[in-house]
Computed example of a mutant assay.
Amino acid sequence: MSDTQFLETAMGRRIAYVKTEGKGPTILFLSGLKSDMEGTKAVALEAWAKAQGRAFLRFDYSGHGQSSGDFTDGAIGDWHEDTLAVVDTLIDGPVLVVGSSMGGWQALLLARARPGRVVGLVTIAAAPDFTEDGYWAGFSDAQKAELEREGFVSLPSDYDDDYIITRRLIEDGRDNLVLRSPLILDMPVRFLQGTEDTAVPTAQAVKLLEHVEGDDIRLTLVKGADHRFSDDECLRTIQKMVKVVLARI
């Protein structure tokens, strides 16, 4: 079992991470909203990377897992800052990013912010711009009024406790949208999406594919897979796509 270490960032956050040394590029796993680095996909991919002798890093955003802060205080931009701090401080050389759900949005933000560092990208049920296109677009007038009045709304979740969606999360999300302006991914990119995903519809995966620009971008639909994308077959598919991207870098 790898030991958890902590990074003190310039923003005053204490970020928990587990780093495995090996040959590069370093595989960086970015978890989803309210998920952490102990999730099935992160741990399984780490085990695969170790078996391959490859460098790997997983971490918890602030307000998640073992990192400092409360989830309800955080927002997309904060977690982007956490990701940048991890890449800039803890990783030398190129990075292959694997992002799950909200981590897919974070992966796209990272690729845009550090194009010279990110050399490959794999996303799993990527959820770019979900605060605007999912939450805000789906809110009723009453929910929007409650958000303005109370500063938050509570939404039921199929995967965890109720989600507390804050006004700051929505407003900060608008400052970090990636589907409203050109997004060039000059690297091998593989998007994975389950057809039974009720959190991120297949149409959103197609929208992302059509929006991004690049010469080596593919979308793979897995019939019957849900948003978790973490059964044995899905885990093998993730590993396969990482191998494909590694071979094409």
Rank of each mutant, 00 (worst) to 15 (best):
M1S: 14
S2L: 14
D3G: 08
F6I: 15
L7P: 07
E8M: 07
T9D: 13
M11L: 09
M11F: 11
M11H: 15
R13W: 04
R13F: 01
R14V: 13
I15F: 06
K19Q: 04
K23E: 15
P25M: 05
T26K: 03
L28F: 00
L28S: 07
F29L: 08
G32Y: 08
K34Q: 14
S35Q: 13
G39D: 13
A49C: 09
K50D: 13
Q52K: 14
G53M: 11
G53Q: 02
A55Q: 02
F56R: 00
F56K: 01
D60M: 05
D60K: 02
S62P: 04
G63Y: 09
H64C: 11
H64F: 00
G69N: 13
D70M: 05
F71K: 07
G74D: 06
A75P: 04
D78K: 08
W79C: 05
D82R: 07
A85W: 03
V86E: 01
T89E: 13
D92T: 10
V98I: 12
A107W: 03
A111L: 07
A113H: 10
A113L: 06
P115E: 06
P115G: 10
V118Y: 01
I124Q: 04
A127Y: 09
P128F: 07
T131A: 02
D133F: 01
G134F: 10
G134W: 07
W136C: 01
A142H: 12
A142P: 10
Q143M: 14
E150I: 07
G151H: 07
V153D: 04
S154V: 15
L155N: 01
P156A: 06
S157F: 08
D161E: 15
D162I: 03
Y163Q: 09
I164W: 00
I164N: 02
T166H: 08
R167E: 14
L169R: 04
E171D: 15
E171T: 15
D172L: 00
R174M: 09
S181Q: 14
P182I: 13
L183D: 11
I184N: 12
M187C: 06
M187A: 09
V189F: 05
V189P: 10
R190N: 13
F191D: 03
Q193V: 05
Q193C: 06
Q193N: 08
T195C: 09
T195S: 14
E196W: 03
V200Q: 06
P201E: 14
P201C: 08
T202F: 04
A203I: 10
A203T: 15
A205T: 12
V206F: 08
H211S: 06
V212Q: 02
G214V: 13
D216M: 08
I217F: 07
L219Y: 05
L221A: 11
K223D: 15
S230V: 04
D232R: 12
E233H: 00
E233K: 02
C234I: 04
T237Q: 11
T237V: 08
K243C: 05
K243T: 15
V245Y: 01
V245Q: 06
V245M: 11
L246D: 10
I249D: 03
